[in-house]
Amino acid sequence: MRKLLGENIANRRHQLNMTQQQLAELSELSINFISRLERGGSSDVSSSTLLKLATALNTSMESLMTNGNITTPTKRGPQLTQLINKLEGYDYAKAESLSKAILQILNEK
């Protein structure tokens, strides 16, 4: 299980052209932990940690733990994932206000 999880994390990270450092930042985990995990050297993975990794890798927790195919890459790269994670960290009103401002900037021509 540990080895499979680590391989799936590394494979998905490579699919997204993401470094371990980027994954560490997006998942709010240490780069040492991610490195150890990818090598199969860490057996202490909580569901909340797995969720952080799956979210940062834009995939499901199940796909990280199973032998099936990892979710194919989407348009959500590391920067967009980081932006979404930041917005989700705010309360509803603040997240909506920031989202509206970002959309106004993007809609300017």
Results as ranks from 00 to 15, higher is better:
103 L>K: 14
56 A>N: 05
74 T>F: 02
59 T>L: 02
104 Q>S: 13
71 T>H: 10
25 E>K: 08
44 D>R: 15
61 M>G: 03
105 I>F: 15
30 S>L: 00
12 R>I: 00
39 R>E: 03
102 I>Y: 03
107 N>F: 01
74 T>R: 08
73 P>D: 00
78 P>G: 02
105 I>S: 15
109 K>R: 12
28 E>A: 14
73 P>W: 00
67 N>G: 03
39 R>N: 09
37 L>F: 01
9 I>V: 15
106 L>M: 13
92 Y>C: 05
50 L>H: 04
71 T>Q: 13
92 Y>M: 10
5 L>Q: 04
82 Q>E: 13
36 R>E: 11
23 L>S: 10
79 Q>K: 15
95 A>R: 15
28 E>L: 10
97 S>P: 00
8 N>F: 09
22 Q>H: 04
102 I>W: 07
48 S>P: 02
12 R>F: 05
7 E>L: 13
54 A>S: 10
84 I>H: 04
84 I>L: 14
23 L>T: 01
58 N>Q: 10
84 I>M: 12
67 N>E: 14
36 R>N: 08
59 T>A: 01
87 L>C: 06
94 K>Y: 11
12 R>M: 04
29 L>S: 08
63 S>D: 07
27 S>D: 06
103 L>G: 09
95 A>K: 12
2 R>E: 10
101 A>C: 01
